[in-house]
């Protein structure tokens, strides 16, 4: 992954990633046939509610967010999904509509906990968990990429505001040291 903007002045490294290819899929995920088809097309299981598996995230009971792996294109995946699922389905390339950030450092949890009404203690939120919520006043979703690295996605229109918000929240000596 490459970054368009990085700030390492705070207690946590905040980085805005360059365009990440991703696809939103709307389909009835409770349907067994659809799940089986998706498993085949995505090359992995459909994640359980509020989970992320192999860069496929559970967004809602009828929605998945799929991060397209390097080397393949969102266009290809959109065509594959729209043609492959034999049920009412809609896959859309949302790469240009989203912004993705990385938060790297031991205190990444504390930066997010400042603005999100979520229990972010290591026991309550671990690798594989995926949470849609708000950060400050911005609708976001985040998950753990590694033990000390969060990935965060929000609408592209919020990119600059979100970056500034994260840099501000990550300032040195501003973290409560709770976790």
């Amino acid at each position: 992954m490459s970054f368009s903007e990085i700030d390492g002045s705070g207690a946590v490294l905040v980085a805005a990633q360059r365009r990440v290819e991703m696809v939103v899929l709307k389909a009835d995920l409770s349907n067994k046939t659809t799940r089986a088809t998706l498993k085949k097309l995505l090359g992995g299981p459909v994640p359980a509610p509020r989970k992320i598996v192999n860069n496929v995230a559970w967004m809602a009971p009828d929605e998945l967010l799929i991060m397209v792996p390097d080397g393949s294109s969102a266009d290809g995946l959109v065509a594959l999904l729209n043609a492959g699922v034999k049920a009412p389905v809609l896959a859309v390339d949302v790469s240009d509509a989203r912004a993705v950030f990385s938060l790297k450092g031991n205190h990444a949890r504390e930066v997010l906990a400042k603005g999100a009404p979520v229990d972010l203690s290591p026991g309550a939120f671990g690798p594989g968990d995926f949470r849609r919520t708000r950060l400050g006043q911005v609708a976001v979703a985040f998950w753990l990429e590694a033990e000390d690295e969060f990935q965060l996605v929000c609408f592209a229109s919020m990119r600059e505001f979100m970056f500034d918000w994260l840099v501000n929240a990550a300032q040195k000596d501003s973290l409560p040291g709770y976790f």
Partner: peptide
Amino acid sequence: PCCGVEGEETEF
């Protein structure tokens, strides 16, 4: 009841 999240009211 749709996604199982237990949140406070500002999320709703």
